[in-house]
Simulated assay, not measured.
Amino acid sequence: MHIDERKKLLKRTESKLIQLPWYVKEFIEYSKRKRSPNTLLNYTLDYITFFDWLISEGFYKGERVDIPIEVLESLRFSDIDRFGDFLSFEHNNAPESVDRKYAALKSLFHYLSQISEDEHNFPYLKRNVMIKVQSSNNEKSTLEDKAARIENKILLDDEIFDFRLFVAEGFKETIKDNRRILNSHLKNMERDLALISLILGSGMRISETIALDLNDIDRLKSKLSVTRKGNKKDSVTISDIALQDLTSYLQIRESRYHVTEQQTAVFLSLPTGPSGKTNRLTVRAAQKMMERYAKAFGKPGLSMHKLRHTFATKYNKENNNLGALKEQLGHTDVNVTMIYTHIGNEDRRKSVNKADS
């Protein structure tokens, strides 16, 4: 590589590094002797994507550059798997692109857990979740491949009704012997059901749902004003059952969560701490809540984002209108939305064969 090109790439990397935490900067500096300038730049861009995702998922409230290393230590394999889904389904990354970003993260986590040393000569990171992550062996991705990955982790047909009923009635039976968890569930059940129903009945992202304020709701038109990526405002239609569950929650919201009209957030957490202050529910808290319901329901792969996939699959099956679905989901590229035309193909094939027999 020509020295001028090398300098140019390193300068671009430095301009991006100032947006990342100190430990990432240290790793890139360490890697300068071992990796090409092009690789270092790609690593830096991949880390920006990853840390932005951490913030959007509620792992940290604040600026990207300030994310503490403890956040990386707290990550679980399911979190990294969700990041892979985000890359595949939201950014439409092919498996080889996902693998490349995973490789960048593996290099960073390896450095932090094996090579770095703090003032006591211990590694910065005590636990490396990336060890558990396997590559896809660079197999070519097709829409069918991506659909197959989703299909076993979403709710299909009667499962949608069954899961909603489980949250409303069945879950408390599974935890009746744990008084602490039961009390928490009973206090938050209407909120949890409204949140889950809203995503199942609109396809909204969890970050969009959590960001809702009371004045974003138009109950007469069954519509919500949603802030999309890039702070773009959009109008989203919600189902009748989602509106019903949301209305039931709003009827007890003020008294249950001890708030006044000055608190505009729709979804709230119960008062905590000495001050007893009620705050907007965080994305992370919502994800953890969903994990409890999904595990008890017997579908541990189900997540808030899989509820969005559930809505999109059902919508496409019932309406067969890709353009309308694209707008409803807030996709900028219809090619991303195309995946939902491939979920349920196996069911259709069986129906055709049955009719033909």
Rank of each mutant, 00 (worst) to 15 (best):
E63C: 07
S184Q: 05
V24Y: 10
A168C: 07
S97D: 10
L165W: 10
I217N: 13
L302T: 01
F297Q: 00
K314V: 02
E29M: 12
F267M: 12
R82Y: 10
R308E: 02
L10S: 05
N183E: 15
F297E: 03
S36P: 06
D99S: 14
G276S: 06
F166P: 03
Q114T: 15
A148K: 15
K350Y: 13
S56N: 15
F59Q: 09
E346T: 14
K11F: 11
R164N: 03
M289H: 08
L268S: 04
K176W: 04
V336H: 13
T49E: 14
H305K: 03
L10Y: 08
T332A: 11
I217L: 14
L45R: 14
L20G: 04
Y43F: 14
A103P: 01
G62F: 08
M130L: 14
I210S: 07
F59C: 00
L105A: 05
Y249R: 04
K7Y: 09
A265M: 11
G330M: 11
L156C: 04
S303V: 05
N137M: 12
A211W: 00
D66N: 13
D234V: 04
N138V: 00
N178E: 07
L182N: 06
M189S: 10
K146S: 04
I67M: 10
K295L: 11
N92C: 08
L281K: 07
S36C: 11
R6E: 15
R179A: 09
D85E: 11
T247P: 00
H120G: 00
S357M: 13
S269D: 04
K101D: 10
N93C: 15
L105V: 10
I67D: 06
D245L: 00
K295S: 11
G301A: 04
N345G: 12
S116N: 12
Q251D: 10
D81M: 11
V336K: 13
G344Y: 12
F50L: 03
D192G: 02
D347P: 03
V226N: 03
N93E: 06
T49R: 05
T49Y: 09
P274A: 02
V65N: 01
K101V: 11
A286Q: 08
A312H: 08
S202W: 01
L72P: 07
T13C: 15
D52Y: 07
L125D: 09
V259S: 11
I28N: 08
L10I: 06
K314N: 12
D347Y: 14
S235V: 15
E73P: 02
D46E: 12
